[in-house]
Design a protein around this nucleic acid. Structure first.
Lengths: 325, 325
DNA sequence: TTGAAAGCGCTAACAG
DNA sequence: CTGTTAGCGCTTTCAA
């Protein structure tokens, strides 16, 4: 329309300096008048990169992951990158599909927190071969050679358990994720070592492997309550589960924390507002996500970096639900 | 590597029938051996479509939107389409940016729930001109010519308010979103009409326009409690806000629901587990999202369809927090 | 049943 | 400062 070649137009739109101001103005004016939108597909195809970070999480409805994504987005925004989010819905198959989809979309790097079903890492090794940077967070593989961001699961589980022991609890139930997940195992070790350290008897029946599914809470709560030796403390898998457990126990006439102390996980806002207020583990989701993104972006920009492992500290937050005395 | 032209390879990979089975097998074998991943960018560029639905929501950390996205994803999966999620973070500027980004990415259609800041619709009209299908949900524009999915905000606000009146409440506070949002206004009208219908005095001081920000709850709660005529009921903006309000009021020595009845919004799981259990409005987020996606996909497939408006019914769920008697 | 060639919208040498 | 040209990886006529 202006009788100008497309290279010049391209230069104007890209904001280059090697162009006559007048020409540039004319192009920009017409572009905005025509409501021109550059075709990202074509740009990305040409550039062989997409400026996009792919993310695979189990479920965005889970607030931990929602907050982690917030942290990822923030870092991505700062770096001028986009984020593409996929949910595995805790399914190994879906996770694999997501991965293919992200690779096909040619994202520049991928951040993953694996599904509960995922018990092997083969689908991720090909990424490394293809040179696509990869960072795991929270739910990671123990052995794989890749960057990862985790919290001090072992230590915090130990600290939480010791706190319960100090409150005088002797029969401490522990609800955690599936055994094959590394962070579940770390937490379990922390719990077990705390018991052993303080000479508290370990009982397998007090250990519940949940699948992070909210529809199972009632079932395992009843199981715990019906044990011949009912627990006098529960270390829950997350705050929502803790809340539901407390509700069920109260209905059974149990007092919290006098009869059963309850320790949550994640330190959601609601912890402060429920009754009794809920002790919990502050799990810095936003920071974890941000760290993962930071590492990934670094690896995208400098292909030769070594995998990095970062540990973010969780904190025990004590409230009424574990104040037995 | 096979001495076969790329057209033939393309045919094999696309699963066409006009190809020799033997050739096809060889191609597919080699492809999987090489871990070949088709370049979605190139395919989309060529096809002039991306099989992708763009979504703009205020915040995915908000459970309503997280669940709505779940509904969108489900429909998209069924239709073999992808979903690209953007967050406006309740900012008008970010919303505009998201929109440009989605258009540049050449998504086939867009689903939007507008930010609290958004008080005009100019940035959306160009979409219609470009022939990009557009569906709004929950937070919609009243006047724009586009498909939309909403709930019966007016009726449900009326029903909730009438329920409180029937409990004997006379000074009913109402917390809602910003005035320029259509659904806030609808709810407010429902509330006002319910009061008038039952000859309950309308007091402006009982109406709070919040911005869906959790950090303002304490402030407006104190404001309401310090009114010369303290409210005896509160219709809250969502369940989390309701929970926090209840917490603050309990600390002030008020009994719920005897002194102040509280009605939440969204019917989160936690409503059943808190004390007193929380009455709420069941707001079918998943269905709303699914409907929006269904309409959008229809419009993508049949460009000539007229805009469709769909209303999904919310339901009043009565629990202890409003059972005054 | 297969191949050659054009083109999707853009960028980036290179030449002028 | 601007235009020409080639090419990113794919699909799709058209011809053989």
């Amino acid at each position: 329309m202006l009788g100008i070649s497309k290279s010049t137009v391209s230069r104007a739109l890209a904001g280059r300096s090697d162009i006559h101001p007048e020409t540039k103005r004319k192009i920009l004016d017409l572009a905005s008048q025509l409501q021109y939108e550059p075709n990202t597909l074509a740009i990305n195809l040409k550039q062989q990169k997409t400026n996009t970070i792919g993310v695979i999480v189990p479920e965005t409805i889970n607030r931990f992951f929602a907050r982690a994504i917030g942290g990822i987005q923030k870092q991505a925004d700062m770096a001028g990158m986009n984020v593409m989010i996929c949910q595995s819905n805790e399914s190994y198959i879906a996770e694999k599909k997501n991965l293919h989809s992200l690779v096909s979309s040619r994202v520049d790097g991928i951040i993953v927190s694996i599904s509960t079903e995922t018990d092997r890492s083969d689908h991720f090794v090909s990424l490394t071969e293809k040179g696509i940077p990869l960072v795991f967070f929270d739910r990671v593989f123990e052995d794989i050679v890749a960057s990862q961001v985790v919290t001090n699961n072992y230590e915090i589980a130990m600290e939480g358990t010791e706190h319960l022991i100090k409150q005088g609890c002797k029969r401490i139930a522990f609800v955690t994720g599936p055994e094959h997940l590394f962070n579940s195992r770390s937490r379990l070790s922390g719990y077990l070592d705390a018991l052993r350290k303080h000479n508290v008897q370990v009982k397998d029946s007090y250990i519940v492997h949940s699948h992070y599914r909210s529809d199972k809470v009632e079932e395992y709560t009843r199981y715990l309550l019906n044990l011949p030796q009912r627990p006098d403390a529960i270390f829950a898998i997350n705050d929502y589960a803790a809340l539901e457990m407390i509700h069920i126990m109260k209905k059974s006439g149990l007092r919290i924390p006098q009869d059963v102390a309850v320790l949550g996980f994640n330190n959601e806002n609601l912890c402060r507002f429920v009754e009794p207020s809920l002790s919990s583990i502050d799990h810095p989701a936003h920071d974890i996500g941000a760290s993962a993104a930071e590492i990934l972006i670094n690896h995208i920009r400098h292909q030769d970096l070594k995998p990095e492992k970062r540990v973010i500290k969780s904190n025990l937050i004590i409230r009424e639900s574990t104040e037995v005395k």
